[in-house]
Structure formats: C-alpha cells, structure tokens
Simulated scan of single mutants.
Amino acid sequence: MTTKLTLGRRGLLQLGGAALATPMLMRTAWAADKFVCKIAHSEAIGSPFTNAFDKWTAILNEKSDGRIEAQHFPASQLGGLAQLLEMSRIGTIQVTAAGPDSEEAIAPEIAATAGAPGFIYKNEAHVDAVLQGDIGEEISRIAREKTGVEFIAYGEVGFRHLLTKAPVTDLASLQGVKLRVPQVTIWVDFWKLLGANPTPLPYSEQYAALSTGVIDGLDSDYFSILGFKWHEQATNILPTYHWFLPKAIRMNAAWLDALPADLQELCRTSAKEVFAEQRAINRAGADKALEDLKAVGCTVHPFPAEEKARWEEKSASLYDTFGATSPETAAMIAKIRALA
C-alpha cells in the first residue's frame, strides 16, 4: 500500500510538473514565433503617407494576434533615406518606403517607374496603369532579385512642384537657382538640362539648407511642404507637375520569407489595401493642401501649358540618355510611355 501511495504521489508530482511546464513551453513557443517588424521612413508626421503607415502598423499587430510586433518610426527617426534603404536591404529594419528611382544604380529599369525622366507620367490614371498592373509586379520581382527587398505595395506622395525663395515662373527665372535634389543622378541631370543648379542633399537637411541659403528652393509635393514646414523658409510655389513620385513599400525579402504563410499573406494583402486607400486620400487632399499653403502665406504662380511644354521639350533628351543605361531601361521607358 505504501509503495502504491509513493508511486501515486510521484506520478502526481510528475503530472503537476508537466502541467506547470506546459504554459511555460507555450510562452516560449509563442515568443519564438513573434516577429519584430520595424517600419521606418522619411515622410512627414501628419501626412497621408505617414497616417497610412500608422494604420498598417495597427493592422499588422492586431490581425497577426501579436505574432508580428510592428513598430513605426516616421520622419527620419532612424536615419536618412540612404541609410534606411541600406538598412532595409540588410534587414536592420524590415520596411521602408522610397521612390523606385532610389534603385537607379542597381536597377535603372526600376528607376524609370518613379516618374523618371521628368514629365513621363501624364496624369494619375497613367500612374495606375503602370504600377497597379503588370509593370508594378515586374519591378517588384526585379527589386527582389537585385536588392533583396520586395515591393509589396505602392503608395504615393503625388506630383512634385517647385518651392523657391524668389519667384520662379519660367525657364528664364529658373536659371542658376540652387535646388535641392536627392543623391540620384537622373534628378541632377534633369535640373541641369533645365538650367537650374541642382544640389544633392539628404532629405532631412532641407529645412536647414533653406534657412542658411545653401539652397534657394526644392521640389516637393504639397503635403511634405506643409508637414516639414519648408514654407517657413520659402514661399513661392510653381505648380509644375513635373515629376510624379510613387513610393514603393519595401519589405526585406528574407524577413518576409521567414514568416509563416498566413503572415506573409497578411503583410502583402493588408499593405495593398491600406496604400490603395492612401492613394485615394492623397489625391483627394492635394488641392486642400495647396489652399492651406496659401493660407500660411505662400504665393502660387501660374504655369501655363505653353510654358510647361517648353520645360518638357528642354528635358526630353533625358529619355534617350537614361534609356542608354541598359536595354532593359530603354524597354521600360517605352512600355511606360505606351500606356499614356
């Protein structure tokens, strides 16, 4: 009887130990399956783009039941654009956003879809025909192969315009104006053709550069001019619509591939849904953002169709120059222009 009781107690102790260990094992397994997703970019706080990332972050956390821990760092909090691009490629962060032109050195055929060369996109319907169709899928595959990131969706900041200290109203008044450009060759070449003095600078340095006179102006969308308060240093706007900047939502491919299949699907489908909404909001709000800029003291100068035509003609040689980068780039430019 004593032996049986002892064995019974031992069995109960073993059973109790296993019962106590089970929640610990479950917590350990859950922790091992938790994937931290750092989302970092350079867009302004309060912009439609940043608001979309806020929404997407919440969706990833909620709909993954906590298996994805998404963290959002807007407005260059983790570094400038060049740093964020490199961090997303090596996996230090998992997601960033930038125009496809940022891959100019690695995959110039991708850069062509970022409104490069200037005036290649005629309107927003043209943009959608390119990026929401076969070309959008193609450049995502190219990005995966050549850069280690997947373009899982496309947002946008829209058409870019000129913001300058002194009025620029035509080609004559543009000559020699020091304009900030990203550190991308095609942007430099575009403004040189038009007679400006392009000055490559990191995105985060534009306010200081305006205030100190390092630059006389910049080109940007209306939301960013408001969000980063560049209008405090320059108040003249020329609505040129010269460059449309889509933003690829770039996810580190190795990190994405390591997720369970359902979480991979969640990342891709939720990004597409959120940034489709972002594009609609961005387009609907652009006119209001311009009115807001007028309200804070900006002057909007007219840009007649005949003047725009002169700018287009002056910069048209860039199609051939940029297309000469590679046969793939020339083919991509031709496909984009054919969809207009």
Results as ranks from 00 to 15, higher is better:
53 F>L: 10
28 T>R: 12
322 F>K: 11
48 P>V: 03
97 A>D: 03
243 W>Q: 14
182 P>T: 01
197 N>G: 00
305 A>P: 11
179 L>E: 06
92 T>S: 15
275 F>C: 14
61 N>A: 05
4 K>L: 14
61 N>C: 09
326 S>W: 01
82 A>P: 04
120 I>E: 08
327 P>A: 04
20 L>T: 13
7 L>P: 09
267 C>Y: 03
1 M>T: 13
234 A>T: 02
263 L>M: 14
73 F>A: 03
142 I>V: 12
198 P>Y: 06
28 T>C: 11
333 I>H: 00
153 A>R: 05
328 E>W: 01
216 D>V: 11
120 I>H: 09
161 H>E: 02
92 T>K: 15
203 Y>H: 12
112 A>V: 09
203 Y>W: 15
24 M>T: 14
20 L>C: 15
300 V>S: 08
211 S>R: 15
228 F>K: 15
247 K>H: 07
63 K>A: 00
10 R>Q: 01
37 C>F: 07
220 S>L: 02
339 L>P: 10
13 L>P: 01
235 T>Q: 12
3 T>W: 09
226 L>W: 02
80 G>T: 13
138 E>P: 07
113 T>D: 05
265 E>W: 01
275 F>A: 15
161 H>G: 07
141 R>C: 06
273 E>C: 11
250 R>K: 00
224 S>N: 11
175 Q>G: 04
223 F>L: 03
188 V>I: 12
310 R>H: 02
262 D>E: 15
37 C>Y: 04
199 T>V: 12
187 W>S: 13
278 Q>D: 14
151 F>N: 09
251 M>L: 02
23 P>K: 14
243 W>S: 14
113 T>L: 12
278 Q>V: 13
237 I>G: 08
139 I>Y: 09
87 M>I: 00
173 S>I: 05
35 F>Y: 14
175 Q>K: 12
206 Q>Y: 12
223 F>W: 13
207 Y>R: 10
251 M>N: 00
19 A>S: 02
308 K>M: 11
177 V>I: 07
21 A>F: 07
236 N>G: 00
251 M>D: 06
8 G>R: 14
116 A>H: 13
237 I>S: 04
149 V>L: 01
116 A>G: 14
54 D>G: 09
308 K>F: 10
6 T>W: 11
31 A>F: 06
331 A>S: 10
20 L>R: 05
215 I>Y: 12
235 T>R: 08
281 I>P: 04
313 E>M: 15
93 I>N: 06
292 D>H: 06
164 T>H: 13
45 I>S: 03
182 P>W: 02
100 P>I: 09
241 Y>C: 11
118 G>K: 09
146 K>E: 03
87 M>F: 01
269 T>P: 00
147 T>E: 05
127 V>L: 11
91 G>R: 04
91 G>D: 00
134 D>W: 11
39 I>S: 02
63 K>Y: 08
174 L>E: 08
51 N>W: 09
339 L>I: 03
